[in-house]
């Protein structure tokens, strides 16, 4: 049996299924016992699993995320809800130097199986400290797997995969895609038929949302859905856009990206993260390293510029990689 679910509900199902069967999984985070995490991934878990397995923490990110790493080294599989990725500044050492590097530094002797759930992104006027994506900031660290589902089917399957992985996995969800009420009505393309049974979606494979022949548009998280909107518009103009969701940053499906661009010869990379030193450059480098000859035109990036995210609506709307900006970039490539 399958039903149409939001990403938030689909993710919750995966975590619930794993928790029912695996006592080593424990949930930690601010307000998780009563409120079930930022997207309700642990909704109702307090009552179901009790305070020993669903642990509301003080506002002490350095402490409890470090403790999750320690618990993981001691045989648990902690699942931590860090609400907004903007807060990683407080606990960054755990990500940067501990959970990511221990397996390597121990020559493979020590495993750190833990899953960090984090919300990303803006578009709702929450300003510079509560709207960032920062996925490149975490994906840059060797030793961390970073996945970024953008629809309910992947949300469930990738969370099952993360929970069965023996590594530190950062599982990102753009707030606007989760299908939680406070971000507005769910975006239709985030909803999906989700089987009731557990299943895994492997990391390191792009997902082609929509096939096309003229231009490849890559996206991740929210920008996938903006790209889909742009593609629908452009279709009316006779432009055929292939929309590729990266959905897994580490590992990254470089061959999947190459395959699409080799077919279309034109590339627009969309990303709500900052422009420089990030995923957008990585995608272009991936193609350039394999065969720059496939580019019929130089590739184009449509991203958040290198500025702190402004609060005011007209300012934020102007800098987000929205469908209009994406469509314009595609048109320029086709002209």
């Amino acid at each position: 049996m399958s039903r149409i679910l939001t990403m938030a509900r689909a993710g919750r199902e995966a975590l619930d299924w794993e928790m029912e069967r695996r006592p080593e999984i424990v949930c930690l985070g601010e307000d998780v016992f009563k409120m079930g995490g930022i997207f309700g991934t642990m909704d109702g878990f307090g009552a179901k699993y009790g305070p020993e397995r669903v642990i509301s923490t003080p506002i002490s990110e350095t402490g409890f995320i470090g403790m999750a790493a320690g618990a993981a080294m001691a045989g648990m599989h902690p699942v931590v809800d860090l609400a907004y990725i903007d807060f990683i500044g407080v606990c960054y050492n755990v990500l940067l130097n501990c959970a990511s590097k221990t397996h390597y530094m121990s020559g493979g002797a020590v495993k750190v199986p833990m899953t960090l759930l984090i919300g990303t992104g803006g578009g709702y006027n929450n300003a510079a400290q509560h709207s960032q994506c920062l996925h490149a900031t975490v994906a840059h660290i060797p030793g961390v797997k970073v996945v970024y589902p953008s629809n309910a089917y992947d949300a469930k399957g990738m969370l099952h995969t993360a929970l069965r992985d023996d590594n530190f996995v950062i599982y990102l969800t753009h707030k606007g895609t989760a299908g939680v009420g406070w971000m507005g009505p769910p975006i239709p393309t985030t909803l999906a038929e989700v089987p009731e049974e557990p299943y895994t979606v492997p990391f390191g494979r792009v997902k082609v949302y929509r096939e096309g022949t003229d231009v490849t548009v890559t996206g991740l998280g929210m920008s996938v859905h903006e790209a889909l909107k742009a593609a629908a518009e452009l279709e009316k103009e006779g432009i055929s856009v292939e929309v590729v969701d990266l959905r897994s940053l580490v590992p990254l499906d470089r061959e999947g990206i190459m395959e699409s661009v080799a077919k279309t010869g034109r590339l627009v990379v969309t990303d709500e993260d900052y422009l420089s030193y990030g995923v957008s450059g990585e995608v272009i480098a991936t193609v350039a390293e394999r065969d720059p000859g496939v580019f019929k035109k130089p590739p184009v990036r449509v991203t958040m510029p290198d500025i702190p995210i402004p609060f005011s609506r007209p300012l934020e709307q102007a800098v987000l990689p929205l469908a209009g900006r994406i469509a314009d970039a595609v048109r320029r490539l086709m002209s």
Partner: peptide, 19 residues
Amino acid sequence: AELLGRRTGLSQGKGGHMH
């Protein structure tokens, strides 16, 4: 004006209510 994101705001709309 800052809370409403206006140009006359303390931060010209850059900050908002938490900043």
